[in-house]
Nucleic acid binder design. Structure first.
Lengths: 200, 200
DNA sequence: GGAGATGTAAAGTGATCGCTGTACTTCGAC
DNA sequence: GTCGAAGTACAGCGATCACTTTACATCTCC
């Protein structure tokens, strides 16, 4: 919108620009690899302004995690909220190959990555990730129940595990195949759990 | 062995001490979080000596990855090589709760973590991880075949995905439950694949 | 017992990074 | 039109980090 006009500087709305840039860079390059300098340059924001909005980089990371969750930023996981789709379609929609960024690199789940990068040095961030994963598993269980699964608890937790594995292994292997494998496996489990039950 | 005696310094065999310490610290605290200073102190080795053995930290990371693989250091994955066990037992043995370190923190797969931490800045290390994951999947496929699975390719890849997911989700959730869930799911898939019931 | 490989101690270098201080500008609201 | 909030530019600080340098000790092997 204001991209074309804002030549010399970003102008008003710095906080929003910072957060958007954080989502972009932290997710793509990692938190450690993204320095404050690179962030401010990309966001067209002065260093001073950044620190007027966020007391420290750690706090920015916290805000970044919350932003990831609140918006539809977690594109893959947003599939669960597509009300127009059937529960089954919503679940299988998770495994779309969104994990691929522009450069073709697969970066896995940004939240999981923060936990790995933090390695205990950012307890608050780690807790945020923990809570998100719990909520996500809960949503999967609910959706599994909607799909008519016989044991939605078990199926939901298994689906969460499969989805996490698909993204993690895609990253380590640098290959999207695990996402397809995950989808197939999820489909098989859904079929089994809903056998003889009208899937709607 | 020489721990009690070696008071003032480590003495001979510095390279070995460095690598052992790297395995310990890199896996527990992460590569970025482990500085050269901390490493040399723990390994009882002078900085100079470290750089006589390894040209750079990156090269040490490479050696660390190779060491992880060559020794039985990857305790979980070593289960596949227990010749005394049945193929089925070997596969289920993967999900032992070894991911828990002394402090109770779950750190997931050290190789995967390097890929996440590197975030593209260490291409050679990333390739090493990639190759390892490929080999591991291959071993799983072989073991699935040994177990008499109808479609060992499919089952092996699914098991690899489940194992990766169990470790990753355990890390993000800071809970060993996904390991148990993974074991149960692996068991169910093994049963299906070896009892004439189609997995699809 | 001497030579050469192996290892040690400790100060120092240059680069990077997160963060701050100071002084100035711009924009919107009243 | 003025005032205050919001933003900018940019130099710089202190800490950390990977890595080097210099000078010295010790073990192994012939």
């Amino acid at each position: 919108m204001s991209d074309a006009a804002g030549e010399r500087s970003g102008g008003r709305g710095a906080r929003e620009r910072i957060l958007r840039t954080a989502v972009q860079l932290f997710a793509r390059d990692g938190v450690q690899a993204t320095g404050i300098a690179k962030l401010t340059e990309t966001a067209q924001v002065s260093t001073r302004t950044l620190y007027q909005h966020f007391a420290s980089k750690d706090e920015l990371v916290r805000a970044y995690l919350e932003r990831l969750e609140s918006d539809g930023v977690l594109a893959a996981e947003a599939s669960l909220e597509q009300a127009a789709l059937s529960p089954r379609e919503r679940i299988l929609g998770l495994f779309v190959e969104v994990a691929l960024d522009a450069a073709g690199t697969i970066r896995g789940c940004p939240l999981h990555n923060v936990t790995v990068e933090a390695a205990g040095t950012m307890p608050e961030a780690t807790v945020l990730v923990e809570r998100h994963k719990q909520r996500f598993a809960k949503r999967l269980i609910e959706t599994a129940a909607e799909a008519g699964a016989q044991e939605p608890e078990v199926l939901g937790r298994r689906l969460a595990l499969i989805f996490e594995g698909a993204r993690a292994l895609s990253t380590s292997l640098n290959d999207t195949r695990p996402l397809r494998d995950g989808r197939d496996l999820a489909e098989a489990l859904l079929d089994q759990a809903t056998q003889g039950i009208s899937v709607r």
